[in-house]
Design a binder for these strands. Structure first.
Lengths: 244, 244
DNA sequence: CGAAACGTTGAATGGTTTCAACAAGAGTGG
DNA sequence: CCACTCTTGTTGAAACCATTCAACGTTTCG
């Protein structure tokens, strides 16, 4: 019995390996312990220890780190199909916090569940490690952007990457995607001030490249944007996938 | 027969789990395929595919990414005991390059070697994944630093982190450590210009905190530096280890 | 209706970069 | 052995990108 509707995680991992019926079943069974989190209440707090991991099935989350001076840096956003807190399974301290951006549905995954998967279904284990490697590659790309790219290119790259990620789970296309982030989220993610984010977005809009408005990202000139950002999604390793 | 001198990797992983004789043997056997790399020749080139991973046993390496405008961003430095290119085992493209900073000795690890370790010695596998998680946590911390910390704090944090890492493999203490990096390396790592790195180092020196000179980092007022950087090495997860 | 969250714009400030120049040491070839 | 170059470090001055401060508009929501 195959589930009527595959989870976003299944959909994502299938872009990497073709999984058997049995393996698909294992993956879906990881989604048993469903949890819900409302906007405004953090899922894990910085400094807490020994947390479970989650698989995000609905909604958007960001993982961030607070600075002593009150500023925060968003490390990554999680969209459906993404793991959440996978790293804290092995490290003794969770090094950052998770905030739901919209109401969220996630499946709790215990360390013991993961161990069992790793021992009994190595191909699924490999697929999960692939997803983890891909997440890490995104963080690296993010770091490069903050360290060495100007604000406009940084923004362009970010919007394109998000589009590629969403396309992989069927939530976006070459034309654009729905995006619940505020300009404050973008600022905290890109290492900019909210004021500057506003200016950069205006500039990109006026150049006829992208529009970010009312929770929707519209690529007006995707090719131009790709050129500006020198965007090459190879690091996402979604070779034959929907977007270039 | 236990090897007379444990590898730096063994030393590092032992900070996480106590390994049995058998497990230690497995770890040492991963070091069989020894390779040498001289300064100036890259180990892996950006964009190359399907590379093996390496365990660094002697020397320093940096992993970096080149921008189209010629600038580069150093993502991380590898010191003895660190893995190198572990991520590219699963991803189809190596997303960045490795440059030896001094002459380097490393052990080549094939994907098949790793698979075997994972299947037969799960505790060693866990320890390796721990190290990988820790590396990722360092990249995250690095990202936060570039995104949200001023140049002086960024530098302070960087020098302290490097000290903690080196102490774990017996190459540094609370007083300081030998460090072959140039100011250009620091600049490319911290997202600054070399000129500014010079100024920041001078400032830290004049404030009586650290001295970086002639390939040696000396902590003059480590407590003061820790306070300036708000340095909490919890994310390194070396709980009971040598440095605070 | 008032408050709160988000978006928008201008002006002043400032941290960092860029440009330029020079010093010191290491290595190289004539 | 000396001149030469290359790498690394150092410092000043000007230019610039992004931040901060401040004000205001809009929408949502209780």
């Amino acid at each position: 019995m195959t589930p009527a509707k595959p989870s976003p995680l299944t959909r994502k991992l299938s872009a990497f390996v073709a999984l058997s019926e049995v393996e698909l079943g294992v993956l879906e069974r990881l989604h048993q312990r469903r949890k819900f989190f409302g906007v405004g209440r953090d899922i894990v707090h910085q400094g807490q220890s020994a947390q479970a991991a989650y698989i995000l099935s609905k909604g958007w989350v960001c993982s961030y780190k607070l600075q002593p001076d009150g500023t925060r840096q968003i490390v990554d956003f999680q969209v459906p199909g993404d793991f959440l807190g996978l790293r804290s399974v092995l490290l003794r301290t969770s090094d950052h916090s998770f905030e739901p951006i919209v109401d969220v549905e996630a499946a709790e995954v215990l360390t013991s569940d993961l161990l069992e998967v790793f021992v009994h279904t190595p191909r699924v284990a490999t697929a999960i490690l692939w997803a983890a490697s891909r997440d890490e590659a995104m963080v690296v790309e993010h770091l490069v952007g903050i360290g060495r790219r100007g604000a406009d290119i940084r923004m362009a790259h970010f919007l394109l990457e998000l589009g590629s990620r969403l396309a992989l789970v069927g939530m976006g296309s070459k034309e654009g995607y729905d995006c619940p982030l505020t300009q404050y989220h973008l600022a905290d993610a890109l290492g900019l001030s909210a004021v500057h984010v506003n200016r950069v977005l205006r500039q990109l809009r006026e150049r006829g490249l992208v529009t970010f408005r009312d929770g929707h990202v519209t690529f007006q000139d995707r090719a131009g944007l790709v050129e500006l950002a020198d965007y090459d999604p190879a690091y996402l390793d979604q070779a034959g996938a929907l977007l270039k």
